[in-house]
Design a binder for these strands. Structure first.
Length: 271
DNA sequence: AGGAAAACCTGCGTGC
DNA sequence: TGCACGCAGGTTTTCC
């Protein structure tokens, strides 16, 4: 479910309520996630102070003095902060209890997410080691992307979703960013002109920034919410709008399949 | 070695 | 109402 803006919004929603607290207990009701929740997680965390909550791509990193807990939300994961924790419902797989009584609760019906532990000093976690640059950082610029795409044979939609090239661009925002850049999703990546790449870099940054800004209005949903809120979908130009009129030119939005995923685009606005 | 497909899961909407 | 089917915002692993 979550793409980078949703993960970043989650981070901003939960971090102020948890940072500086100590973990008093960890309850794992279901350890069968993308990978098993490590048996030693509770032992690692209990008594430790949470120093910060960071994000790398779509991973959330909970920093403790002796290591970091990695959390990925997969397709359907959510994290919520509870002041008064009701009994856990179906799919609410993990609780972290903190020193002031606050509970952080992880829910993930499809169990594509993960909760892992990495000791400090053990180097970068293998899942993070080969990730490309953050799209909103200065490392993601025209020269970088032009070089990364130069020899890619795949279509541009799949290239910008490849986290070796850039992290955090998921299926929704890939379609949205290509629309904003005026680039057809079936163009071969290596065939983009420099001007295409300039517009695409700008479009990716703008699309993600806009979504994060809109997510800011939902921050309160991460505390004591019913679990259904906490996510948002910005008004899209193309995603999910098959056969609907393009918001710019009125031509019908088209839906195709690329790499087993749906892509939406306007054949009139994107070339 | 790069690219395509399969795999991991549950839930929901649709059509018969 | 029930059931089969296809689809869903991710990513790793496997197979050519």
């Amino acid at each position: 479910m979550p793409e980078l803006p949703e993960v970043e919004t989650t981070r901003r929603g939960i971090s102020p309520h948890l940072t500086g607290l100590r973990v008093t207990d960890v309850v794992v009701r279901e350890h069968r996630l993308r990978w098993p929740v490590p048996d030693e997680l509770a032992q690692k965390l209990i008594g430790a102070e949470l120093l910060a909550v960071r994000r790398r791509g779509k991973y959330l990193l909970f920093d403790f003095p002796h290591g970091s807990m990695l959390v990925h939300l997969g397709m359907s994961g959510t994290l919520r902060v509870l002041r008064q924790a009701p009994a856990a419902e179906r799919h609410e797989h993990v609780d972290w209890l903190f020193s002031d009584g606050t509970v952080l609760r992880y829910r993930d019906p499809r169990r594509f997410g993960c909760v892992l532990w990495q000791d400090a000093g053990a180097g970068e976690h293998p899942l993070l080691a080969h990730l490309g640059p953050e799209p909103l950082s200065d490392l993601f610029h025209t020269d970088y992307l032009a070089n990364a795409l130069a020899h890619r044979q795949s279509v541009i939609k799949l290239a910008i979703m490849d986290h070796h090239i850039v992290v955090g661009v998921g299926n929704i925002y890939a379609s949205e960013a290509l629309f904003r850049a005026g680039v057809h999703p079936e163009r071969r990546a290596s065939a983009l002109t420099r001007e295409d790449v300039v517009r695409l870099v700008d479009a990716i940054k703008a699309t993600l920034n806009d979504a994060i800004t809109q997510g800011g209005s939902t921050l309160r949903d991460f505390v004591d919410s019913d679990g259904k809120s906490g996510y948002f979908l910005m008004t899209s130009f193309v995603y999910g709008r098959n056969d609907a009129p393009c918001r710019v030119c009125g031509a019908p939005i088209r839906q195709i399949r690329q790499g087993q995923r749906s892509t939406f685009f306007c054949a009139h606005c994107q070339h």
